[in-house]
């Protein structure tokens, strides 16, 4: 299967998952790269994304796979696609891979926590995440369930980067079950509200398989 690794940053982080599919589809057409379509009454292109990215989250490690309808030199794809991409989306590489997306297990994320009034430190946040039992309430459409997110965090480090700004780097479960970055903040809100940041910016850094090998 053909695959691209791409970044989604800056203003592009507000493009939703559904809109991203449309955006990619159009970019491929602009680049003159022909994606294979399904047969049938309402043909749609063969393309799929590894892990849907929540709106507002940046990423350096998005993966999309696709089928082509004619032989195409994959090494030339990033340059062709980047010439026609909207601001903030950048193709880093194009390659072939047989590893199925379901083997993605871990995800490295970075969260920048902003405190505008009170100053909290990396130490406090680390103490919270590493020292507490992280059972949080998770609301679904119908019900509220308790989830222990502790086992979904493989590692976590925090670092003071400026007064009132803490960078939390964590390796979290990518799927089945996934730990969404927003749940880290939910944990703070629910279990240690005084540490709740005024604003948080999230970024995905990399994806790994179950043995912590980089997944491509």
């Amino acid at each position: 299967m053909n695959r691209i690794l791409f970044k989604k940053e800056g203003r592009a982080k507000f493009i939703s998952h559904l809109d991203l599919m449309r955006t990619m589809q159009r970019a491929f057409i602009r680049a003159g790269v022909k994606i294979k379509h399904t047969e049938g009454f309402n043909p749609h292109p063969y393309m799929s994304f590894a892990l849907p990215l929540p709106v507002g989250v940046e990423s350096e490690c998005e993966l999309m796979e696709f089928e082509l309808s004619e032989p195409t030199e994959l090494s030339g794809l990033p340059a062709r696609l980047n010439a026609v991409m909207p601001e903030g989306i950048e193709i880093l590489s194009a390659y072939q891979s047989d590893l199925k997306f379901k083997y993605i297990k871990w995800l490295d994320i970075k969260a920048q926590l902003f405190y505008y009034n009170e100053v909290h430190t990396a130490k406090e946040l680390e103490a919270f995440f590493i020292g507490s039992r992280l059972v949080i309430e998770k609301k679904t459409k119908r019900q509220t369930a308790s989830v222990d997110i502790g086992p979904l965090i493989a590692s976590l480090e925090a670092e003071d980067i400026a007064p009132g700004r803490v960078l939390v780097a964590a390796r979290v479960s990518a799927q089945e079950p996934a730990l969404s970055p927003a749940q880290l903040i939910s944990a703070i809100e629910q279990l240690k509200p005084e540490l709740t940041p005024d604003h948080t910016g999230f970024k995905r850094i990399n994806v790994f398989d179950k043995d912590f090998n980089v997944f491509r």
């Binding site: 203003r11 507000f14 493009i15 939703s16 159009r26 709106v55 909207p86 903030g88 604003h199 910016g201």
Partner: peptide, 24 residues
């Protein structure tokens, strides 16, 4: 982008309407 605006954009419906940055 302004940090306050960024925070707002994470809360509103269809934020891509307010960011610009489209192709062309």
């Amino acid at each position: 982008m302004d940090a306050v605006l960024e925070r707002i954009l994470t809360r509103v419906q269809k934020p891509a309407r307010y960011t610009g940055g489209e192709y062309n």
